[in-house]
């Protein structure tokens, strides 16, 4: 386990270096942060003075080395727009995204598992066909369209649910949570449904096909022959082996989910990381962008590591390399 952890950390550091270098090379293509800070009638000289002050006129390498030197000490720079340390800004926006992803994951897990199993066990029933048909539709509609349709139906027409924002938050330490108040939960419903709308059908289909495959295997046939109860065969023996590929895909999909939060958060004015990212691109807030991409990089490394560990727990046959 120790060797595994060390290897992961080294990999992580390497990923961070590559990301930061790429960010630095492309950041000037995004635009000029100074333009967003000053009014349009400010003279070119004033702008130049500001660029000097912000260190944007230094050569690329000087800027990069200065950045690395500070990053090692945990300081990835100051967001031009928020006028606060970029890392602090990101951390303050993280709860919003994490809660959204968390609730969406719950929706996905608690719907895809029963629906997937049902469709695998009764492949010919009408309900299965309907579920499969709908899942095709779900995969093909873009998230932002789903989101706008949800707002239109449930907020504008029916007026059941709020149309934007996180609503009332309950603060536990620095973590502003929408999970602990009725108002906050109401605000969570539409965005999390919109966010899960892509992944849910995917997982239903994945679980269904995996399960159907597993049901054909010899050990299941043996279990039937042994006279085991059908529930035990389906839910214990078959389902356990269905999970393996689902977990792998799930780990990868969490990354995709973060990408989709950008769309969902923009439509719902959800003040999370995706929204922050889009805004930072628009304002050419380059320090914030670099910090964001590095944080996402770290999340990916950590998630993949956790997935590898869970993999070993679910299937003892798979051993993590170097975990002796």
């Amino acid at each position: 386990m120790f060797a595994f952890t060390v290897r992961r950390i080294i990999q992580g550091v390497f990923v961070m270096l590559v990301i930061s270098f790429l960010c630095f090379t492309i950041q000037h293509q995004i635009g000029d942060p100074v333009r967003d800070i000053v009014g349009i009638s400010v003279s070119a000289d004033e702008r130049e003075a500001l660029r000097d002050k912000m260190g944007l006129n230094d050569p690329f390498f000087t800027q990069y080395v200065r950045f690395l030197g500070k990053a090692v000490q945990g300081d990835v720079g100051m967001s031009f727009f928020f006028k606060r340390p970029a890392l602090q800004v990101i951390l303050s926006k993280a709860p919003a995204t994490l809660e959204l992803v968390f609730v969406s994951s719950l929706i996905i897990i608690f719907l895809s598992v029963p629906l997937g199993i049902y469709c695998a066990i009764n492949p010919r029933s009408i309900l299965s066909r309907i579920i499969m048909g709908l899942s095709i539709v779900g995969v093909s509609i873009p998230v932002f369209l789903t989101a706008i349709m949800l707002i239109y139906i449930f907020s504008v027409e029916l007026r059941w649910l709020p149309s934007f924002g996180r609503g009332q938050l309950v603060y536990i330490g620095g973590w502003g949570s929408g999970l602990l108040s009725l108002n906050g939960l109401k605000h969570l419903i539409l965005p999390s449904i919109a966010l899960s709308s892509i992944m849910l059908p995917l997982f239903i289909r994945l679980i269904r096909s995996q399960m159907m495959e597993v049901l054909e295997t010899d050990y299941i046939k043996f279990a039937w022959a042994k006279g085991l109860h059908k529930k035990r065969i389906w839910y214990v023996h078959a389902f356990k082996n269905t999970l393996l590929p689902v977990i792998t895909v799930g780990g990868v999909q969490i990354g995709t989910m973060i990408a989709f939060t950008i769309l969902t958060e923009t439509v719902f004015q959800w003040q999370g990381l995706g929204f922050l990212f889009i805004e930072a691109v628009e304002r050419a807030d380059t320090t914030l962008l670099v910090a964001y991409l590095m944080v996402v990089g770290i999340i990916f490394v950590v998630v993949n590591t956790i997935v590898d560990i869970i993999y070993g727990l679910v299937n003892p046959m798979v051993r993590i390399q170097g975990s002796q």
Binding site: I151, Y152, S155, V156, R159, P162, S163, F164, V267
Partner: peptide
């Protein structure tokens, strides 16, 4: 679109 929806929904 969200800004308009926020008004139309009464939020």
């Amino acid at each position: 679109a969200t800004r308009v929806a926020a008004l139309l929904s009464g939020d």
